[in-house]
Design a protein around this nucleic acid. Sequence first.
DNA 1: TAGCCGTGGGT
DNA 2: TACCCAAGGCT
Length: 382
Amino acid sequence: MKPSIDSAAKLAAQEAIAALQSSYLDPEFSAAVIKWQKQHGRHSLPWQQTQDAYRVWLSEIMLQQTQVTAVIPYYQRFLQSFPDVFALAAAPSEEVMAHWAGLGYYTRARNLHQCAKQVVEKYQGKFPADTTLLQQLPGIGRSTAAAVSAFSYGTIAAILDGNVKRVLARVFAIDGYPGSKPIEDAMWLRAQALLPQQDIEAYTQGLMDFGATLCTRSSPSCERCPLQARCLAFAQQRTAELPVRKPKKVQKHKQALMLVLIHEGQVLLEQRPDSGIWGGLLSLPEIGGMRELQATEVLAMTDQLAQAHSFFERFGEVTQMLTLPDFSHVFTHFKLQVTPLRASIATRHAMVAEARYVWTDMAQIQSAALPAPIKSLLLSLA
DNA sequence: TAGCCGTGGGT
DNA sequence: TACCCAAGGCT
């Protein structure tokens, strides 16, 4: 059997990558990180001092694109309600979503719940140590699989998060936006090549602590940096321009009319679909959804008000309608301007036959599965 | 592949 | 104010 051209080319490419990766080998790098971590790293975060894979995994999912200070209270409340993977797997999804509300990226919460169920069913409640198996679970990608396995089981595997990208971009003066595919691929090779043979926990934690406390985005503490002598960005005085920032795009603006119907201490909420913004959360009913604001478009406010009025009438006899002050909320890729429209009704009609509408006690708002700005609006009305 | 997905903090 | 972006993954 003679190899095809394709497989020969593929083999050559793999050899080239292996050669490149071995040229990245650098044992002193990890030694410096490990030494620094033991002396100056963080050691008392709530999810440290344990190798319980459930706790490690929970923290890693919560920490995706989310800062430590934001995660801590959510992590504590979560553990209190769901002390182990069996408790989480058995919980109703509404309860899980309510515990996640306010933390953002709500797909993480649904994946977390699904993942817990799979770990119980497939692995008898024990997270696998193999990063390949971990990656097959929902919500766990390459980096999270490596972190969970390293912290729980001591597996030698590379992470590549924002901290590591920043450190690598600076120490090795890597040009190009780290979010782009070719740069990220190159960084994975580096991260893999730089792995130590032992002390993987200290090394992994050290990279993150290093990026979070020393090699920060702006004004890094180069004077205290153990890698200063080997940092190309420092030598070239380019720490301010590396890593290369994300190419900016024009911000989109959207507008939404949200309906506030409060009657006898209850507010009318609507269950949002699982996909899209605020997926799976409760929110206020909207007229026409979140509409992109066109420069030429004059909002047909009277038309929207008419629609709102007939919406309110489905729930009771409308006695009053008034707009509350506008507010805006910024997402990753658009800015939303909200006009809340409040109505009063005399008597409440029998519940409309759509399960997505729920009357919720105002006293329950604090613990409801609501997006942060909506929860805050409703609390201000209570 | 790059766009989508929240929220809060820093500058 | 406006912008960047953080312990990323999914499509």
